[in-house]
Design a protein around this nucleic acid. Structure first.
Lengths: 402, 402
DNA sequence: CCATATACTTTCGACGCGGAAGTATTGCGG
DNA sequence: CCGCAATACTTCCGCGTCGAAAGTATATGG
């Protein structure tokens, strides 16, 4: 077995030929990619296909090196060990198929006004390297150069880079053109082409929030769900709705939603918007306005947790707003799960009870309970989201949109 | 036309063999059913199939009598007349296919605490007869008897009844079992089986609001849309979300949603709920509480339109609440269209401007405009919705749910 | 060692589809 | 009036995918 693998496809293991997959093959690849190793019989159940079809579909995938038969491992008698646990059912044991996650790597970048964050991930979207480069010049050419340089560094360590994803704020068209970005002061920047030219690898560009949401929908909290909503709370505020695995595209992402008509004013002079209630800068600004002190977000949360009156009130007002918002999303969009992501979700740890109360107050008592998940995401998580775009588009050819 | 129908397909018109349609045939049938007569080439474009496939799919449908070739009419040269308008393009003219809408009829019933409303519709869901029978006894057996009697009357006029749909309030399981209905004081009533036993025709039972929404999704405002939301306002309040033509099932339909935390109290003691702000009884109760007079809904709207201060304030408060709700649905569920239906949408005629203002106040300025449609529905419209259930389930076999 | 159970493979026939070629029916330009 | 182009539709054929059935592989349990 070992011999066969090493002798038969030495070059194809280092660079599997990603010839376009048929729809059936793609479904198999996505199922294994997002749901870990699966046996053929389990795949048959999930994809609603016959056993025979699965043999047909998986054979070319294993032959091309994209999948490996985990049961045929050279050393460990893995199946015996796995089934020895308590699944000691009768009959021939399953032979799980797995994706060769490490055979290909992908780079993902998140561009902010201050720095470029980069990661390298496997096919499974696990981060295997990360880097941060401060951004002096915000000029598009300078940013493209930075990404080029970081990619070169990554390439030294991971020669099998197969594609690159880039997430930026603002509006992006055709997964390639940055229409406008206020933070960087960009307009109509063909970033994908610029970077592609430098690096010679396929490049996908999209809105950073959209990238994070896609990543969660594919590999994270939204795996396999029909309806999935994501709120991102951090320096800004974002919302995304994923239906049948596809992000619903809109022209705005919720900054000006009014949650509490009598809430605090935001920087645009609106009252009780999601931005004014929930974002980190808004919460810090409220504390500073009341006390004159400039406290960090974590200091404010600590104060609230310790029962310090002012921060407590502000944090819990924010938590009530968040709960109201979550309940309304649950009521109107009816997702199976709602994910809170971003840097500003520490709120839930401190005031989770208040969030729950606000949710319950805005839900019908007999309605299904809201499934809420929280995940703190730093900037490298956002970069990982961008890498997922590259995985989607380049490997599986599933990046069609609009 | 009349002659052809009577002479050409006497037996097959009286009972076309509804043998189960293949998925492809079903797609064709649904497209023609919901989008009127379509030529084969137009169908090919819509369904993304080749011209050859369309010949294959349509042939058995025309042969079985479900579809007719509108171009092959003996008398009128319909195609010439149709293309004579301004579409005088070169080439062989199209020959539109149409469904024989009148060959089959369907009965639909809406059961309220006071009466049973019944309609007969064509395959296209056009109402061709309507009836109302007061309900003395609310006992399930009595209701089933009433429906049986009304169906007999319908049958006398329309012998080709193919199926029956019934809409009731409350929760319904498996399109047959009424789990509970507060107005009728029913619990676990197997209504479908009871009526089926009496009449001998297939019977489908579902929640009345769900039926109305399905009807609008198939034949009304939601035709062909991916994401479609419906609000029903009348004696009660309802909400439904239709994704990819399928209604998202939930256990509640929004009665307790809080729109304005400082709004009026509803009958459950909650403040500013959709029910307390928008329903007809709630608006009438507010007027009566303030004036002591019991005014009808229309009188209140007239008063508001004439500028009478009290009714104006109440109606416009309601309109603001409606606008806020619509905006939030647009923000969170991102439908392509929102339909306002029911008996209580006269509000929009009187205070449409206020509704619009409230929508704009809760939308991002650069967001896509909200597509809003209003449709007054009386109880016979609700019965028509129930008939659509029968059309869906019985003719096209597309009623799978859960 | 054999029965049973489960996993997977092989083989074969059915079916749906697209593409190419052929037919039908119009308008248009000589 | 006669091609000629254009469009609509039909017929035919080959391909690819699928499921069913039969066959093979590998475990457990008596």
């Amino acid at each position: 077995m070992v011999i066969r693998e090493e002798v038969e496809v030495p070059s194809s293991a280092s660079m599997p030929n990603w010839r376009p997959l048929s729809p059936g093959e793609r479904a198999v690849a996505i199922a294994i990619l997002t749901h870990g190793p699966l046996s053929r019989s389990e795949l048959a159940k999930r994809l609603d296909l016959s056993a025979g079809s699965l043999t047909r579909l998986t054979k070319p995938l294993t032959e091309s090196g994209l999948l490996v038969d985990a049961g045929s491992g050279p050393d460990e008698p893995a199946p015996a060990g796995a089934s020895g646990g308590l699944t000691t059912r009768q009959g021939r044991p399953t032979r799980p198929l797995d994706i060769v996650a490490g055979a290909q790597h992908f780079a993902g970048f998140k561009v902010t006004a201050e720095a470029v964050y980069g990661v390298v991930t496997t096919l499974r979207s696990e981060i295997v390297a990360r880097r941060r480069t401060p951004l002096g010049d915000r000029d598009p050419e300078a940013v493209a150069d930075r990404i080029d340089a970081m990619t070169d560094e990554f390439k030294a360590e991971f020669p099998h880079l197969a594609g690159i994803g880039i997430g930026v704020g603002g509006r992006v068209r055709d997964r390639s053109l940055v229409v406008e970005n206020a933070f960087l002061d960009w307009q109509e920047v063909p970033l994908a082409a610029m970077v592609e030219e430098r690096i010679g690898l396929p490049v996908v560009v999209d809105n950073d929030g959209a990238a994070l949401i896609e990543a969660e929908a594919w590999f994270g909290a939204g795996r396999g769900l029909d309806r999935f909503a994501v709120l991102t709370i951090g320096a800004g505020f974002g919302y995304g709705l994923v239906l049948d695995g596809k992000l619903v595209r809109t022209r705005e992402s919720g900054k000006r939603w009014i949650i509490d008509p009598y809430g605090p004013f935001d920087k645009n002079g609106e009252r009780g918007t999601a931005e004014g209630l929930l974002t980190i800068p808004a919460i810090r600004a409220q504390v500073q306005a009341a006390t004159g002190r400039d406290m960090t977000y974590d200091e404010i949360l600590d104060g609230a947790a310790a029962g310090e009156p002012l921060t407590y009130r502000i944090v819990h007002q924010s938590a009530r707003g968040l709960g109201t918002l979550v309940a309304q999303i649950a009521n109107y969009a009816i997702p199976q799960k709602i994910l809170l992501a971003g840097e500003g979700v520490g709120l839930v740890d401190v005031a989770g009870e208040t969030v729950r109360e606000a949710i319950d107050a805005n839900r019908h008592p007999s309605a299904d309970p809201v499934v809420l998940e929280t995940k703190v995401s730093d900037f490298h998580e956002w970069a990982r989201g961008a890498a997922v775009l590259a995985i989607q588009v380049l490997v599986l050819g599933a990046g069609e949109e609009r």
